[in-house]
Simulated assay, not measured.
Amino acid sequence: MSAVPSPSNLSTILPSAPQKLILASTSKYRKELLTRLGLPFSCVSPAVDEQALTGETPMAMALRLAEAKALAISQTETDAWVIGSDQVVDLNGLAMGKPGDHAKALQQLQSLRGNTVRFHTAVCLAKGRATQVMNVITEVTFRDLDDATLHAYLLAETPYDCAGSAKSEGLGICLLEKVRSDDPTALIGLPLIAVCTLLRDAGFKIPGSL
């Protein structure tokens, strides 16, 4: 897990007690994960263009998009704390995101099989224009499976909204040989250890008082 300095510092606005929390995402996976912390929050779509920039590394892309998603909401919802997150697969420097359809998902899995890759899962906490960003790296080794097995998996799971097409919390676990990470929920889409760190630094109580 690595913290990345941001232009603004959240510590300058800590005196005002945090009350409103927004997840800048409509992902059902991230919503379910954040629900585990027992904090009230709402979900808002950030409407951010997720295309990679020319020459951008996978890690830089994940960090940029996580911050962009949070800022897209926090600059209008100025009284709220906003969480943005993004995940990018790093295959030897090649960025890989959500496939969107079956054909692209099969191509992704064909590229990933037999390889060890990095999943960059970045998370940003923002309020107004102040941000704090962290990146969590998960190292994943894929099994060397044949096309028929990959095709059967895709038909059963339809993971077309998952980066790298490997839905590890579901049937996608059968595609994997090894997973290494300091933050076990990062591969699903939201690194909760990093999120807890950011929220506690911002004054949230986790677990909250009864």
Rank of each mutant, 00 (worst) to 15 (best):
I73W: 10
M1P: 09
V133T: 15
R118L: 12
R129H: 12
T185N: 13
L65N: 05
I13P: 00
L71I: 08
R180H: 09
A66K: 02
C124T: 15
P207M: 04
H120R: 04
P7C: 00
P46A: 10
S8P: 00
A166Y: 14
R118K: 13
A17Y: 04
G128F: 09
G93H: 06
E56G: 10
P5Q: 04
V133A: 09
A66T: 12
K127Y: 06
S168T: 11
Y29D: 03
L175I: 11
P159D: 06
L187M: 13
T54V: 11
I206V: 08
L37I: 05
L210H: 15
T78A: 11
L65E: 02
L63H: 02
P159I: 02
L109F: 09
S25H: 09
N135T: 13
H102I: 00
A3F: 12
P58Y: 04
I137A: 12
L192M: 14
E169T: 07
P184K: 06
K28F: 05
L154I: 01
N115T: 05
Q75F: 04
Q132F: 03
P184S: 11
T12F: 07
V123Y: 06
L171Q: 12
A163D: 11
V140Q: 05
W81T: 03
V48L: 08
T26I: 14
G164P: 11
G55P: 06
A126T: 07
P58L: 02
L125S: 03
L109N: 06
Y160W: 14
T141C: 09
L150A: 01
A163T: 08
P5M: 01
I137T: 15
E157W: 00
Q110A: 01
Q110V: 00
P58C: 03
A66M: 02
I206Y: 11
D146Y: 07
T131N: 01
L171F: 10
S2G: 12
Y160M: 02
K20I: 11
S181W: 02
S2K: 15
P5H: 03
Q108M: 15
E139C: 05
L145R: 03
L91W: 10
Y160Q: 06
E77V: 04
L171M: 13
N9Q: 09
P40I: 12
V140D: 07
T149N: 00
T131S: 11
